[in-house]
C-alpha cells in the first residue's frame, strides 16, 4: 500500500510552486518597504538614539 494522502498533478505542483514564490516575493517586498520607510522617516539619526 502506498503512502496515504492527496497526490497533486504536475500542474497543481507547478501552481503551488508559483504561489510559494509569489508569497516569498511579497514578504521580501514588505520587508524592503518597511526598511526603506523606517530609514526615510527616522532619517540619518536612526542609530543615534538614547540607550
Amino acid at each position: 500500500m502506498g503512502e496515504p494522502g492527496i497526490v497533486l498533478t504536475e500542474e497543481q505542483k507547478r501552481r503551488r510552486r508559483m504561489r510559494s514564490i509569489a508569497i516569498g516575493l511579497a514578504l521580501a517586498g514588505l520587508v524592503v518597504l518597511l526598511y526603506l520607510v523606517t530609514i526615510v522617516r527616522m532619517g540619518p539619526d536612526i542609530m543615534e538614539r538614547p540607550l
Binding site: G2, P4, V7, Q12, M18, R19
Partner: peptide, 25 residues
C-alpha cells in the same frame, strides 16, 4: 493508485475542500 491516495484530477469537489488549487493569477 492506492485506495488511501486521492488523485486530484479525479477526486470529487467535496474531497478537495481545503486544498489550494488556484494559480497566482
Amino acid at each position: 493508485m492506492s485506495d488511501a491516495r486521492i488523485d486530484m484530477d479525479t477526486a470529487s469537489d467535496a474531497t478537495l475542500i481545503g486544498v489550494a488549487r488556484g494559480g497566482v493569477g
